[in-house]
Simulated assay, not measured.
Amino acid sequence: MDKMNLRRRILNTRSGLDEKVLRESSAAIREHLLEQPWVQMAGLVACYWSIGSEPSTHGLVFALWKHGTTVMLPVLQPDHDLDWAVYDGPDSLAPGPYGIMEPVDTRRGVDAIRTAALVIVPALAVDASTGVRLGRGGGSYDRALARVGPNVPTVALLHEGELIEDIPTESHDQRVAFGALPTGIIRLRQM
Rank of each mutant, 00 (worst) to 15 (best):
E162T: 09
D91C: 06
E35D: 15
R136M: 06
P97D: 11
V110I: 15
G68L: 05
D173A: 06
A123Y: 00
Q174R: 08
L158Q: 04
V45K: 04
L163A: 08
E24I: 08
A112C: 11
L34P: 01
S25N: 14
V119L: 06
R8I: 10
V110C: 12
K66N: 08
F62C: 13
V121A: 12
C47L: 09
V119T: 09
V148W: 04
S171T: 14
S50A: 11
P150G: 04
D81F: 07
T13P: 00
H32F: 00
M4R: 15
P55Y: 00
R108C: 02
A27P: 01
T13M: 14
V61H: 00
H32N: 11
D166R: 12
D105T: 14
I113Y: 04
S50R: 03
R8A: 13
F178P: 03
A63K: 11
M4A: 14
R133C: 04
S171V: 13
L17Y: 12
L44H: 07
L73H: 04
I167D: 01
F62L: 15
A28Q: 10
L44T: 15
D2I: 11
R30F: 03
H159P: 02
P182N: 00
E170H: 15
E35Q: 14
P150E: 01
L163I: 08
R147Y: 03
V21P: 00
D2Y: 07
Y98C: 13
F178Q: 07
M101L: 15
E170A: 14
G68A: 04
E19I: 14
A116C: 07
D166T: 10
L34A: 09
L82P: 05
Q40D: 05
D111V: 06
R133V: 08
M1S: 15
A27C: 06
D83P: 05
G68S: 07
P78V: 05
H58D: 10
D91M: 10
Q174P: 02
L34M: 13
G96W: 10
L17G: 10
H32M: 01
L82G: 07
A117R: 11
R23P: 01
T183P: 00
L34K: 09
P90N: 08
E24P: 01
D173R: 08
S15D: 09
T106H: 11
G184H: 04
P90R: 09
L76N: 07
G149R: 12
P95T: 11
S15G: 06
A177M: 13
Q36C: 11
Q190D: 13
L34Y: 06
H67M: 13
D18H: 09
L145K: 03
D79S: 01
W38I: 10
Y48F: 12
L93N: 05
D83K: 12
E31W: 09
L118M: 09
